[in-house]
Simulated assay, not measured.
Amino acid sequence: MKDIEVKFPLIEDISMEVAKKYGMIQPGESKTQSVRAVFFVDPNETVRAIIYYPLSLGRNFDELYRALIAMQTSDKFNVATPADWNPGDDVIVSPAGSCGVAEERMTSTEDLDCKDWFFCTKKLDKDLVLDSILKK
């Protein structure tokens, strides 16, 4: 690929120092090659997610992008995203903290789909998500 601007940091680890410190040498594969790993680090320098791939397995860049957008959506809108979530899919609203709040929540005018007091989902518009995350 040519003329691609990478807008995030990448680590080159020729000495294998980082790979050894983080236990990334795959047993039985090689003494000089590490697994392929993706570390999602937020602006506060907190590791939010790690995805490991053995040398023999290609990475799924659509899944990496999906995971990144899901984490950013969770942060921006104070929601959780279910398995296989993509922008435009329903999100999970955090459970209420007390029974009184739970009753209020079940009768709320907010557009929630509550299965019970502890599990509610809501629509989150795909364009709203992408516009606020990607700042088009």
Rank of each mutant, 00 (worst) to 15 (best):
S56D: 04
K126H: 10
S94W: 09
E63M: 04
I92S: 03
K76W: 01
D131S: 13
D62H: 11
V101C: 05
L130F: 05
A96K: 01
L124C: 08
D113I: 08
G58I: 02
P82Y: 04
V101I: 11
D62N: 12
L134Q: 13
W85R: 00
T107Q: 10
I92A: 00
N86A: 13
A102H: 05
K126Y: 09
I133N: 07
A70I: 10
A83G: 05
D89F: 02
S74Y: 01
S56A: 06
S94I: 01
E110K: 15
L134P: 03
D75R: 13
N86L: 15
E63Y: 06
G88S: 06
T73E: 08
G100L: 07
C99K: 13
N60Q: 02
L55K: 10
V91N: 04
R66D: 07
K126A: 14
N78C: 02
N60I: 04
D127R: 05
N60M: 01
N78Y: 03
T73Y: 03
F118Q: 12
S98H: 14
F119T: 14
A80L: 12
T107K: 05
V91R: 02
T109I: 08
L130A: 11
T81R: 04
L68V: 02
A96L: 03
L68C: 03
T107C: 00
V129P: 13
K115L: 10
D111T: 14
V101L: 06
L134V: 05
T81I: 01
N60S: 07
V91M: 05
K123I: 00
G97V: 11
E104G: 13
L130Y: 12
V93A: 02
D131R: 07
A67D: 03
D116I: 09
P87D: 06
K135T: 09
E103D: 14
F77E: 06
P82G: 08
D111I: 02
C120S: 06
G88L: 03
T121H: 01
D111H: 10
L112R: 01
V91T: 09
W85G: 00
Q72S: 09
K122V: 03
F61E: 09
R66F: 00
P82W: 00
N86I: 11
C120V: 06
L124W: 11
G58E: 04
R59L: 03
F61V: 13
C114G: 10
P87N: 02
S74M: 14
F118W: 14
E110M: 12
A80W: 07
I69Y: 00
V129W: 05
L68Q: 00
P82E: 01
P82T: 00
P95Q: 00
V101G: 12
E110D: 14
F118L: 10
F119K: 15
L55I: 09
D62Y: 07
D62F: 07
D111E: 14
S132I: 01
K122I: 06
A102R: 15
A96M: 13
W117H: 12
S132A: 10
V101N: 11
D127L: 05
W117D: 11
D62P: 03
A96F: 04
A102L: 09
L68F: 13
D75M: 10
D131G: 08
G58H: 08
L134T: 08
M71R: 00
V79P: 04
L124P: 11
E103F: 15
K122L: 06
S98P: 01
I92T: 10
V101K: 13
D111C: 02
L112T: 05
